[in-house]
Design a protein around this nucleic acid. Structure first.
Length: 544
RNA sequence: GGUCUGUUGGUGAAGUGGCUUAACACACCACCCUCUCAAGGUGGCAUUCACGGGUUCGAAACCCGUACAGACUACCA
């Protein structure tokens, strides 16, 4: 029996690869990057895939290339109902949109692996016809058995060399066993020698030394679906991927992939292996990869719920993707991160510390650049989902709220007091009477003792809400000066006992009266927004 | 066990043989400014790049060894 006849026996009615090679012509990109996101339909996007998608998107966009979406659903056990939808939606929310692919269309489809069965079989048939693939009948138990022996004798694990028992099986015996109805997988007949070392230049990691592959890896599972390794080679060849951007857990299977491309006669893409997102483990103190099971912050849902805006997450991803991004951004705070030119060789090689406090500080910067109107709009969207009470207040007082958010915003150096949507309520609740006066005693926790006479006199004789800020403050100064307060800080510092206090002490009292807090945005603006009547109501309660 | 990869101040890191008496950011300390906070300003904060050898006129950078850490090691992706 010839190899060709054997291939025909294994894969009858499967076309020759020339059919697919013609159907999917090579792209002509002139150096632009064609890359992809290739998620499994597990239903949700986690930070790792978002990060990968972010990098892929930037690289494709900034070279005028193509980003496409391919669904890798070759594992039925992991599949989740509507999993594809969740993934696509997750990407979309974070601004990752595709030029072609699943659900969008394009000339290189279908873009879902479960519909590409015949394509994979055609290429396996081709390999069989060249005697580069063979059926394997080993049971799971036999493979397990071998592994145990390998572990005990400290040999390399895997199906290779003398462990690859089906490799030498005659075609005739294979035919007989298949006709007998025995289950089998297809394996690659590896041509490599483990002792040979090569260097591969990864776009991110630089030169990597790797041994030639000698594993007869499974390429077609017994359920008739290809393994990741094989589908990757065929799909990225046919779809014209120029750059494979993926997590570095794949580095160790690079030898498989390189051999597959070589034996199939494909030109290998440029690989770019992204270092894992890591964190410091609280128990051991060691740095480790973020884990789906242990770390809730890996799911993008976590940020949605915590009210970290999409824009802040993207800004954060940009800062970990390229270490020189942050410096650029600090000099170009009015620009979008998409204006920055990212490069593979500026990406971290070892691991990227996914630091929540860093994300928070990036988020503060993000919020500080928002216009008051946008803060309002975004807060409306978040509270609609998570805080009905505050949502209704925002809806009831749109102009008032926008004026409130405008304080010390849209200026050269804006405040950085908001890191997430819930912070908006935490920061500003006291400016809404509905929240202020429903508290039993809003001043219960205040450590400031009101000087009744002074405050009453101030509001009766001095405070005039038509005063502009400088006049208002001059009056405060004069007023406190007349009551034994120091006129400036220096005087007070030199001789604190000579004074009743300093202007800031009086302002603090005003601030607490108006807000219950000792820290707040600009006092004058808050007083203006509250207005005389509402202030007097608060004063009355404060003096009680 | 095997394969591969890292290790630079309190933290994240830049740096690929001489422009480095180690960038930048955060944190921290002091002072200045100031109605609070934040922001801003000035100055301080690694005689040294895990450790031990070697190559070189010259090493954080190149080579070897050691230690530690990480990733992978499926008919999962």
């Amino acid at each position: 029996m010839t190899d060709k006849e054997f291939a025909e026996f294994l894969f009858p009615n499967i076309p020759d690869i020339s059919y697919y090679e013609e159907k999917y012509p090579r792209r002509h990109m002139n150096g632009a990057i064609v890359t992809r996101c290739a998620p499994s339909p597990t239903g949700f996007v986690h930070m790792g895939s978002l990060y990968q998608g972010f990098v892929a998107k930037q690289m494709a966009r900034q070279t005028g290339g193509i980003l496409f979406l391919r669904i890798e659903d070759t594992d039925h056990k992991r599949e989740v109902e509507d999993g594809v939808k969740g993934i696509v939606e997750g990407f979309r929310q974070y601004g990752i949109t595709f030029d072609e692919g699943y659900g969008i269309g394009g000339n290189y489809g279908p873009y879902i692996q479960s519909e590409r069965g015949d394509i994979y079989k055609a290429y396996i048939k081709y390999l069989v016809s060249k005697n580069l693939a063979y059926p394997c009948f080993c049971s799971e138990e036999e493979i397990d058995e071998n592994r145990k022996i390998q572990e005990a004798t400290k040999e390399r694990l895997g199906y290779y060399g003398r462990w690859a028992t089906c490799r030498s099986m005659s075609k005739e015996e294979a035919v007989r066993r298949i006709q007998n109805g025995e289950a089998y997988v297809m394996r690659l007949r590896s041509q490599g020698d483990f002792r040979n070392k090569h260097i591969y230049h990864d776009a991110i990691k630089g030169d990597l030394e790797y041994p030639e592959n000698d594993m007869d890896i499974v390429i077609l599972k017994s359920d008739g679906l290809p393994t990741y390794h094989f589908a990757h080679a065929v799909d990225d060849h046919l779809m014209g991927t120029t750059h494979v951007i993926r997590g570095d857990e794949w580095v160790s299977s690079l030898p498989y992939h390189l051999e597959l491309f070589q034996l199939l006669g494909f030109e290998a893409p440029q690989y770019a292996h992204i270092a894992p997102l890591t964190k410091k483990d609280e128990e051991t103190g060691n740095i480790r990869k973020l884990s789906k099971r242990k770390d809730p912050e890996l799911a993008v849902r976590y940020y949605h719920e915590a009210g970290i805006p999409v824009g802040a997450v993207n800004l954060f991803l940009a800062t970990i993707a390229n270490s020189n991004f942050e410096e650029w951004y600090l000099q170009n705070e009015d620009r979008s991160y998409t204006d920055f030119t990212f490069s593979f060789d500026k990406m971290p090689v070892g691991g990227s510390l996914f630091d929540l406090s860093k994300l928070e500080s990036v988020s503060r910067i993000y919020f500080s650049h928002l216009k008051a109107r946008d803060v309002y709009q975004e807060a409306l969207m978040y509270t609609h989902e998570y805080d009905q009470e505050f949502y209704e207040l925002l809806q009831k007082y749109p102009d008032y709220s926008i004026s409130l958010f405008h304080i010390e915003r849209e200026v050269e150096r804006p405040r950085k007091d908001i890191a997430s949507y819930p912070d908006i309520r935490k920061e500003f609740w006291y400016m809404y009477d509905e929240l202020f006066f429903t508290k039993e005693n809003p001043y219960a926790d205040c450590k400031i003792y009101p000087e009744k006479q002074l405050l009453m006199e101030y509001f009766e004789t001095i405070y005039d809400e038509t005063d502009p800020q400088d006049v208002w403050f001059d009056k405060v100064k004069t007023f406190t000066g007349n009551h034994g307060y120091a006129l400036n800080r220096k005087d007070y510092k030199q001789n604190p006992d000579a004074y009743r206090g300093q202007v800031s002490d009086f302002c603090e009292m005003l601030r607490v009266m108006a807000t219950t807090k000792t820290i707040s945005p600009n006092l004058y603006d808050l007083l203006q927004l509250l207005g005389r009547d509402r202030l007097l109501k608060r004063l009355e309660l404060f003096l009680k």
